[in-house]
Design a protein around this nucleic acid. Structure first.
Length: 133
RNA sequence: CCAGUUGGCCGGAUGGCCGCUCUGCGCGGGGGAUUUGUAUUUUCGUACCUUGGCGCGGGGAGGAAAGUCCGGGCUCCAUGGAAGCACGGUGCCGGAUAACGUCCGGCGGGGGCGACCCCAGGGAAAGUGCCACAGAAAGCAAACCGCCUCUCAUUCGGGCCGCAAGGCUAAGAACAAGAGGUAAGGGUGAAAGGGUGCGGUAAGAGCGCACCGCGCGGCUGGCAACAGGCGCGGCACGGUAAACCCCACCGGGAGCAAGACCGAAUAGGGAUGACGCGGGCUCAUCAGCCCAGGCCCGUUUCCAGGCUUGAUCAUCCGGGUUGGUCGCACGAGGCGUAUCGCAAGAUGCGUCCCAGAUGAAUGGUCAUCCAUUCUGCUUAACGCGGAGGGACAGAACCCGGCUUACAGGCGAACUGGCAUG
RNA sequence: GGGCGAUUAGCUCAGCUGGAAGAGCGCUUCGGUGACAUCGAAGAGGUCGCAAGUUCAAGCCUUGCAUCGCCCA
């Protein structure tokens, strides 16, 4: 069952380490991506990056103007941030940079569904990588 | 009760769990001077500095935070003053204000039965331009059709004389031509040189008169815009200034990505053009002083003051940094109250401290309630169940306005209508 | 955050001092060709971004909105 496989393993909510520089976003854009209706997840190993630490995963968020006005964009980013904070501890791998791009579903989906989406995306990104390797 | 007008206020509430940011205190981590304890070193440790942790407490989006349309504070452009020109803005009058294109009160015009609403509302008699098409004519008095008078010719008709041909005559009618008088009527246009009525006339006309409008002069009231009488003028002066313009008043430019400091990194570049390769004195050099030249932010002139004369200025090309701190939140501040003022507002007193982010915090989620919509049961209200569902919108240096967006709700004053007492 | 600019035919743009809208490319039809292209002829296609105002009259003047784009340290 999909549900059993993707139950949300709520690890301890971690305080997110954030990706804040434009250069970091551009680097992650060249990595692997996974799409769901609510978000697009991009990931890349951050070895050799200045300021990166081996044992933490860093997250960046992108919300474009196409999604709506400032209030709508703020709400989308806050929901995604909270989702990442709850899910990252169990599913994100240290030493990786992730960029989450909001889509329309980030506003309309229920919060539990949103968490499930991010789990699937995180697993999907890494599964694809190991399959290729 | 129904319909409406004006000016205000609010912009879901409570709780659980988990977070973000600023800040105060305490604990903790790191660094750690002078002095003293000693012969030296090290360690401990104080003031102090700093921060990534922990605990407790406190604060944390709006009426528009928006658009960036005006006005200011503040900062830089090296600085200040005077006069003129140019450019831009504003525009009834008086007041409020730091200032304004904002606000308040009044005046004038327009709309509404009314409460009330709307108006870029100076000057067209300083000058210039424009008024397409249509129309005779579009701005200065002109006359296309028409109306009327006169002259002359013709025709018709009448009268008289004559047998007749014909002649004479005049108060007529029609039509052509010419001369003149008209602007009532027609038609065009957005607009055609006061309007209506009576008189008047050949026909007409401010030609005359009455009322209305308009202009000029003076009087009264008002700070003024303006209003009201009075007298005179028979009418001249079309519209457009969100066309140029005139008049009055205001305005230097750029903006917190302003600007200041610290640190890192790279470079002490290249091309083209301009000015110039200044003089004298102290003098080994640096540096200073005097004279001369250039420059000082829309522009010209004048004054003061300053900068600069080579490591120059202007334009273009190339390279590096894409960190931090300050600016930065006590302010034309909020709330309450008293006095003055019709009001906008002013002054005094008391009280409060009220966001400070920077890939950008101020939240995420769940539940209940509340407002509200649809629907099922119910005769119906009520009640119960289910589903939907909470407007516009997110501080970015700060204030005063304007404009635009906005689900719904609260209370006030006033107007019109109906009913009742 | 702040400062600027643009919007006219399907596309790229003209349109001066207000008097009612044009060019090139494209499109359609016809001619021409065995057929096509080139070529020739004719034609269609416009809420001038939207809304108010000034004016007799607005693509043009004024104001407010909307959309798109550029610049800065």
């Amino acid at each position: 069952m999909q549900d059993g496989k993707h139950t949300i393993l709520l690890g301890r909510p971690v305080s997110l380490s954030r990706l804040k520089k434009r250069a970091g976003f551009l680097r992650v854009r060249n990595g692997r991506a996974w799409r769901t209706p609510a978000l697009v997840l991009q990931a890349r190993h951050n070895a050799g990056e200045t300021g990166a630490q081996e044992n933490t995963a860093r997250f960046g968020f992108t919300v474009t103007r196409r999604l709506g006005n400032a209030v709508i964009r703020n709400r989308a980013r806050r929901r995604l941030k909270e989702t990442a904070r709850l899910v990252a501890g169990a599913h994100a791998r240290p030493g990786y940079d992730y960029v989450v791009i909001a889509r329309q579903g980030a506003l309309t989906r229920s919060f539990t569904q949103l968490q499930k989406d991010l789990c699937i995306a995180l697993e999907g990104v890494h599964k694809e990588q190991s399959a290729r390797a």
